[in-house]
Design a protein around this nucleic acid. Structure first.
Length: 231
DNA sequence: AGGCCGATCCTCT
DNA sequence: GAGGATCGGCCTA
């Protein structure tokens, strides 16, 4: 048998739910440095370290967050946000992409954290799988690390890129408990301790465009956005 | 029933 | 730096 640990089990250990039972700004900074890990139906896994996030506030806040999907209360699409902390909220955008959030706060409060970028992790085989998911040529990934900066960014720098790389869809992943050891999509931690994050306004929104709710790890190559927002 | 628009990405200039 | 793809969801009527 030549099944490497990488392709059969997730790295690190499951995150404690208490870390996410909190306001989105605090949950967001705690998510930085954690690992998002997905097990595909064929048993392979794809993983990345979270390097950029954005907080979206629930409608109970004053003032409420007009950029949040929960702004106008529960709907069929956003109901996961009003449920318990630590679940995946995956939605489709522009008809062709998905974005993924982590719900936070106690049940009834709809705060959440958008995952905007990952540093890809894993073996060459795993990186190549992510490249295939992204529709990229696997050749730059077939030898594993070190990955060129440009190749790493092409994989997982951006909220919809990371969903593509990990094969995340609304149909398969929306509502999953990220802290359940049997879940095919989990949040893990491996002892990585990030420094104080860069804090900026959120990207790509029109409402509340100046609220400082984007958090990124300084010096991380996969952080998205224009240079001045990448630390 | 219909219209509008987006927490994006990619291509081209 | 700008524009197009593409469609589900939410709002108005």
């Amino acid at each position: 048998m030549s099944s490497s640990a990488d392709s059969s089990s997730f790295p690190g250990r499951i995150v404690r739910r208490a870390l996410l039972l909190d306001a989105p700004e605090r949950a967001a900074t705690r998510l930085l440095g954690m690992i998002l890990a997905r097990r595909a139906e064929d048993g392979t896994i794809q993983t990345g370290r979270i390097v950029e996030v954005e907080a979206y506030l629930g409608p109970h806040n004053t003032p409420p967050d007009p950029a949040a999907h929960s702004f106008r209360g529960p709907t069929g699409r956003n109901r996961v946000l009003f449920g318990p902390a630590g679940h995946a909220y995956v939605y489709s955008i522009y008809g062709r992409y998905f974005c993924m959030n982590v719900s936070c706060e106690p049940e009834g409060r709809a705060g959440c954290v958008l995952l905007r970028a990952l540093e890809p992790l894993g073996t060459a085989e795993s990186l190549a799988r992510m490249a295939t998911h992204r529709g990229l040529n696997i050749e730059p990934y077939a030898n594993g690390y070190p990955l060129a900066d440009q190749a790493a960014r092409a994989l997982t720098s951006g909220p919809s890129r990371l969903c593509q790389a990990l094969g995340l869809t609304r149909a398969a992943h929306n509502g999953l408990d990220l802290l359940d050891p049997d879940s095919p999509l989990q949040l893990r931690e491996d002892g990585f301790t990030p420094a104080e994050p860069l804090v900026t306004p959120r990207i790509g929104i029109r409402q509340a465009a100046d609220w400082p709710l984007r958090f990124a790890l300084r010096g991380q190559r996969c952080v998205s956005g224009p240079a001045r927002l990448r630390g």
